[in-house]
Simulated scan of single mutants.
Amino acid sequence: MTMTKNPPPTTVQQQQPFHIDKEALRAAARNLDDGAVTDGYRGNRKEVIAMLNDALATELLCVLRYKRHYYTAKGLENEPIKAEFLQHAQEEQSHADKIAERIVQLNGEPDFNPRTLSDRSHAEYDESESIKDMIKANLIAERVAIEAYRQMIERIGDNDPTTRHMLVQIMAQEEEHADDMTDLLDL
Rank of each mutant, 00 (worst) to 15 (best):
S121L: 02
V12A: 13
R115I: 11
I131Q: 10
L25A: 09
Y41V: 00
A55W: 15
D54P: 04
R42Y: 06
A100S: 04
D39V: 06
R26S: 06
Q105S: 06
L32P: 06
S121G: 00
H122G: 10
I103T: 03
D97K: 05
L32M: 13
A29K: 01
H69V: 01
A96R: 11
G108E: 03
N44E: 10
D33E: 15
F112M: 04
D126I: 05
D39H: 12
Y125S: 13
L61F: 10
S121H: 00
S121K: 08
S130D: 02
T58F: 13
A96G: 07
I49E: 00
E124N: 09
K74W: 00
A28F: 09
K46M: 10
G40N: 14
Y71I: 14
T116I: 07
A100Q: 07
T72G: 09
H95I: 07
R68P: 00
Y66N: 11
D21M: 06
V37A: 01
E59F: 13
L32W: 07
A137R: 00
L52C: 15
F112I: 01
T10H: 08
A55R: 00
L25H: 10
S94Y: 08
P80Y: 10
Q14A: 01
A36K: 15
F18W: 02
R65Y: 12
T2S: 05
F18M: 10
H19K: 13
N113S: 12
G35F: 00
V12I: 12
Y41N: 10
A55T: 04
E124V: 07
R102A: 09
P8C: 05
E47K: 11
N138H: 05
E91Q: 15
A83T: 07
M134Y: 03
E91W: 10
D119W: 04
I81H: 07
A89W: 02
L56W: 08
N113Q: 06
N44T: 12
L139E: 05
C62N: 15
A83W: 02
A28W: 06
L117N: 02
A50D: 15
N44P: 01
A100T: 09
R120P: 00
Y66W: 11
D111P: 08
K22V: 06
H19Q: 13
A73H: 00
G43R: 12
A27Q: 02
A57T: 15
N113L: 09
A36I: 08
E84S: 13
N44Q: 05
V63G: 14
Q90S: 04
H88P: 03
D133Q: 09
